[in-house]
Amino acid sequence: MTGVLSVPLLLASANDFSGAFKFIGNNPHLLLTLSGQQMVLSGAAIGAAMLFGVPLGLVLGHLHKGSFVAINLSNVLRAVPSLGLLAIMLALISFGFLPAFIAMFVLAFPPILTNVYVAVDGVDPQTVDSARGMGMSPFGVASRVELPLALPLIFAGLRTAAVFVIASATIASVVGGNGLGNIIFNQPSYGLAGVLGAAITVTILSLLVQGVLLVAQRYLTPRGLRVTRARGEATALSVAPGGAENLLAAGTEPA
């Protein structure tokens, strides 16, 4: 496959990319407007998913109940391709913001719910026990112990959801969810330069959001947990089909 990336092709693509950057320079207003629309769609979907997913995950994790649903929902729904989901929404509802929004919500909800559940469920039982032993109410335990300790993993879920949703929101313009996809899917009007310019813009957008979320996570993570933050990240994306369970089964015993 590397042979394909030969020198003439690279030169040709360099030409295309300079056109792309020219397009970005010439159309900042258009790109900003479309980025804004895409962010509204993504933000609304992620916000709605958090509105339902975080409390539900907290309650289920606090009670250590519903693990089957909370964990397998992600596995089952991951198999739904974003474009396939948009296609189904198109068939069921038609064009517009609403089908795009619903599709984005369905994509964002599972990683958020699963990560909140796994995070809260996984808080050291001894910590929870000592909190209860000191007389904290169940609400106090959930809000002052479990939630802060679970934050790194919850943020990991949020970041995963954000990656999925921003990527999918680009495609959502095929069903009428406005965004940078309006340019990417309309090469006849904007030319290859426009398509590439929009692709670059959406890439930057996605990286920016990840960066902001990372910084926010660092701020919100209790200081005592920051030392282990790196490890939390590494496992974040592997909160995968039965991943956590299976890894636990392999088991490490403290020396």
């Binding site: 990527a167 680009t170 495609i171 990417i184 398509v195 590439l196 670059i200 890439t203 996605s206």
Partner: peptide, 10 residues
């Protein structure tokens, strides 16, 4: 993190 359609097009 690169959105899929963007990577394909790029």
């Amino acid at each position: 993190t690169i959105p899929s359609i963007a990577l394909f097009e790029l």
